[in-house]
Design a protein around this nucleic acid. Structure first.
Length: 301
DNA sequence: AAGTCGTGGAT
DNA sequence: TATCCAAGACT
């Protein structure tokens, strides 16, 4: 066998083409991926998708963009309206932060979602992942986009373990940076493709390796798919927590279109200490506004 | 840096 | 029925 005329491709590069080709054939047709979605549409989707499944985001997303097609439209409305329109997506502080981001974009960026990563990161509710996602998906830039899907794909395909660590590590960031294609457009495509692979094929449970374009080079699969070892990944109980009480309280206020008396809130939970703590927390978070007359409503300013 | 913060579908 | 988990951010 003669020596190859080209250097042997690095293992990283051998992942790009199959995953991107797979994406070209299998990408879901999601509204925030349409060309007309624009940076604001991408940003709204990223806020809503934080910890929330696509299927539940879809209807709220459509309604949201119809009502507030530009950041300035949302900024001009009361934050409580954002909380109300958020509906039952969960983690309603995200609605408040998205409203805050719209205000900041209107004030600091002339109403246009910034393309600069540092400026994105400075917006409320925008962390490392969301800043990279908006810069990459909306502006075609080259950034490592490390969400839970990508982290799982890398953990398996490269590191050879079933699950990534609980919190993102420096090693993961280094790996994501090393795997990032040099070309900007290819890097943006890779980010979306590797994320979609984790969402559709390399899932947390019941992964479908027979549909995976890189199954032949997956370190975890080649090792016989050993089960996750170590402490169980923290399970989140919910029943009886403050979070559940907060959810019940806020649900009453979302449905009400006039200020709600204390007595109405008292009915959602019978333990007074926890109930008061939950309400105080909502007020402290700015999700609920107490009025001088003792009633409560969603925030107006 | 470990905890907190919602919700509902799937298994 | 109980547990898991879904494109994280913030403190």
């Amino acid at each position: 066998m003669t020596a190859p005329t080209k250097p042997t491709p690095a293992a990283s590069e051998s992942l790009h083409s199959p995953v991107i080709d797979w994406f070209d054939e299998n990408a879901r047709d999601l509204p925030w991926r349409r060309p007309d979605a624009g940076p604001w549409g991408v940003m709204v989707s990223e806020f809503m998708l934080q910890q929330t499944p696509v299927s539940r985001v879809l209807p709220v997303y459509e309604q949201w963009l119809r009502r507030w097609p530009r950041p300035a439209d949302l900024a001009a409305d009361a934050p409580g309206e954002a909380v109300r329109a958020w509906g039952r997506l969960g983690y309603p502080r995200r609605a408040l932060r998205l409203h805050g981001a719209a205000v900041a974009i209107t004030e600091r960026h002339g109403g246009d979602v910034p393309s600069d990563h540092a400026q994105l990161l400075a917006l409320p509710g925008v962390g490392e992942y969301t800043a990279a996602a908006v810069a990459s998906f909306a502006h075609g830039q080259r950034h490592p986009v490390l969400d839970t899907n990508v982290r799982r794909v890398f953990a398996r395909a490269v590191t050879g373990v079933q699950y990534p660590p609980n919190a993102t590590t420096a090693a993961e960031r280094k790996l994501a940076r090393a795997l990032l294609p040099d070309d900007e457009r290819t890097a943006a495509r890779w980010a979306a493709a590797s994320m979609e692979l984790g969402a559709l094929v390399c899932t947390a449970k019941n992964e479908t390796c027979h549909r995976c374009p890189i199954a032949g080079q997956c370190a975890w699969r080649l090792a016989g798919k050993p089960a996750h070892d170590g402490p169980p990944r923290r399970g989140q109980t919910y029943a009886g927590t403050d979070r559940q009480v907060r959810g019940k309280l806020l649900a009453v206020l979302r449905e009400a279109h006039t200020p709600v008396p204390q007595a109405a809130l008292d009915q959602v939970w019978d333990e007074p200490v926890q109930r008061a703590r939950a309400l105080d927390g909502l007020v402290a978070d700015g999700l609920v506004e107490p009025l001088p007359d003792g009633r409560y409503r969603l925030p107006h300013a």
